[in-house]
Write a protein that binds this DNA or RNA. Sequence first.
DNA 1: GATGAATGAGCCTTCATTCAT
DNA 2: AATGAATGAAGGCTCATTCAT
Lengths: 236, 236, 236, 236
Amino acid sequence: MRETLPKTPAAARETRTARAAQAERTAFTEKAILDAAEQVFARRGLEGTRVREIAGAAGVNGATLYNYYPSKTALYEAVLDRGVQPLIALMEGYAAGPRELETTRTLVAEVMSQLSRHPHFARLIYLEAMAEGDYVPTLSRKWFRPVVDGILRELRGGPVPAEFGQGLHPLVAALFLHLSFGHFAMAPLLREIFDVDPLSPAGVERQTRFIDALILQLFPQLTNGRGGESEGKGAG
Amino acid sequence: MRETLPKTPAAARETRTARAAQAERTAFTEKAILDAAEQVFARRGLEGTRVREIAGAAGVNGATLYNYYPSKTALYEAVLDRGVQPLIALMEGYAAGPRELETTRTLVAEVMSQLSRHPHFARLIYLEAMAEGDYVPTLSRKWFRPVVDGILRELRGGPVPAEFGQGLHPLVAALFLHLSFGHFAMAPLLREIFDVDPLSPAGVERQTRFIDALILQLFPQLTNGRGGESEGKGAG
Amino acid sequence: MRETLPKTPAAARETRTARAAQAERTAFTEKAILDAAEQVFARRGLEGTRVREIAGAAGVNGATLYNYYPSKTALYEAVLDRGVQPLIALMEGYAAGPRELETTRTLVAEVMSQLSRHPHFARLIYLEAMAEGDYVPTLSRKWFRPVVDGILRELRGGPVPAEFGQGLHPLVAALFLHLSFGHFAMAPLLREIFDVDPLSPAGVERQTRFIDALILQLFPQLTNGRGGESEGKGAG
Amino acid sequence: MRETLPKTPAAARETRTARAAQAERTAFTEKAILDAAEQVFARRGLEGTRVREIAGAAGVNGATLYNYYPSKTALYEAVLDRGVQPLIALMEGYAAGPRELETTRTLVAEVMSQLSRHPHFARLIYLEAMAEGDYVPTLSRKWFRPVVDGILRELRGGPVPAEFGQGLHPLVAALFLHLSFGHFAMAPLLREIFDVDPLSPAGVERQTRFIDALILQLFPQLTNGRGGESEGKGAG
DNA sequence: GATGAATGAGCCTTCATTCAT
DNA sequence: AATGAATGAAGGCTCATTCAT
């Protein structure tokens, strides 16, 4: 809008091309910044992170960040938002679907797959939770509660194993949180303890199968007449 | 030279009293500082924490901290050490005992009880793990690995449920980590999601029973002829 | 990658100009900082100086200093180095030249001239000496000892006036130190006592002539057959 | 005055003894503090000195200093005063005496002797001069100016060697300052350069004789018919 | 009088952010 | 859009000084 009108078609094409290249470069830089920020924030948290560290990891000057985000906090929130969007999309599909064991098993697998694509994001969420950050209520409302509500509704469908006592359901829902997000967030510690990389494809797959098997093991009553497929999966 | 002998019994008593009172006061201050530090570090981590915030929470001046610890980092390590000592004691008792289901169940209960006495400590460990801090290897070697080794040795005693596939044992050990430490570390998020306080006595007890029941449920083969007590517990 | 090539000669010129202007400005700032630091350090010494005082005297923000020097100490050393370089150059010329009275008289005059261009530097050296600072051995080795050695070698050429006794030579060499560096270092006190400014051109010139006359007066034996140039002195 | 009256002669004696012992201890502590302060201030100056360093050197607790002096600055001034008093006494004797070469030679010797008894004091004065401290005008008025005035009056008595040009007298007076105070103040540097200790008795004596010989050498006209004794001195 | 503990002020340094280019 | 330089606002830590004993 601001530039002078191109005088010739050739110039127009040239301009368009230049503009496209520019836009591409911008998008590239922005992604580099977001990726770098995700990684660094996941280690140090919002307050412990130095913006120059993000800039260094992104390969740009510290001042450049401010061409993309008005503040460190804004960048932090952008990272959180970018990570949470795909999860919300998954959750919406899940909430819209039928209340069946199968749906939940699928959701778990998809969440694990998504988290493995942004391996630092779960850590970020854990950090935010432990810092009792402002984002926690929002996060809880927009993502965790809907998912948990779905799980709880389904659990209510079957009898509770007597030996667990009252108030079991929230703990089971929390168990899934621990096994999915916790697996990624605690990767550094687990790696240290077990000498295997929880973030490797094999590590993620193993944990995914483990969760799945646990569902079937814990709630056999939910699998009436459908045990066959689960065994096929678990025996792999 | 350092201290002149008191001339009279009265003076002696007076001196002793005064000195004792002094010692008591400094012990009180030191505990206040450690407690405050544990709480604040658990929220913000080492780098995100302001010394002045700790001082404020402890009710002393920022400079006073340096009468007790030479640096923020030293204070941080003192907090970690204080928290880990009781756990190491528990672990040593466990390692010395026989490899039986009962021993492990007891250990879990005791660990939960200990963590509930220092509710911020687990969060601190989680933060340290996520920051890939220098303390992680030490922590892993001195505490997590011994415990996990114990658990793994016991698991090896029984057949693995086939549906879990290979490499199950580490995941089970990690499961206990998630359910014990994770319960305390994620308390702020769980509270937000479920509207109950995981750190309340009831919350801790419920989670403890949940873990216990899970052990029995997952590994019925380990409970030959001893199912009775577990049911008694779980039916509450 | 670092710098895209300028597309047109005009742009090139523009860029070059801009960059040159930038470089000029930072050079200006750096000189302002060094000058301010020399002045303030000369009054308060390394430990007694506040960084903000230097910054204020240089007309920049305290944080700006750290864009140029990594620490107060590094800045201090830069000031010392800058001041000592020209002296070392003089000394090297002196050491390379012949051992003659004339050479030494010239050196003294040049040293006085150089010190008058950095009137605070001598004070800095005196402060450092009195603080028994780390720089003293280096300074002694790189500058004072070579000069003194030259003077001593020359003195050995002639007979010592009997009334001075043994061990005279070092004291004479020290005398020159006191009269040159000491003149500048003690300027504040001398100004107070005598109500004249030792740092004024006239003050420096007077002291220089005084030292020169003293040389000839003390060591007439060194001026054999060269009385012509030292005429003023003899003509009483 | 404040204590209750002693009931018996024995008690009275006891009290008197106790009081004397107390006073003695106090005087001892005060001297320790002053000595330590003189030494430390002479290295670091007023602003660069830590009161705890003085306390440590004096062997007392930092807080104890405040039982003797209300502030670091007050202690600093006490050190200066203690050091300057004997010099002022010397100066008053000198000013009261006749204007003769002998008087001045004696003064120089006595000043050197006094400075050697407080080897850090000259450094302190130099530091204060270079810091352009508040004490400089006082010091100049109460000590340096009177002495210098005496010297100048005497110099006026004889013809000035023409080769020194106009304005010589102040420079000669300053020369004595450099050779006396400067010798002690620059001791650390001179030691480094010449590998001899200027503060040792031999070092002080040598410098004293050097100054004395210089007086006679520079102003032969002032020594009419009195050369004998000076030669005896200088020939040692 | 002597001391350990406490503290407000201040110091060096770093950091997030802005600005000129 | 990108950057080097500049800066106000902390942040960790030290220091002179005070207080209670």
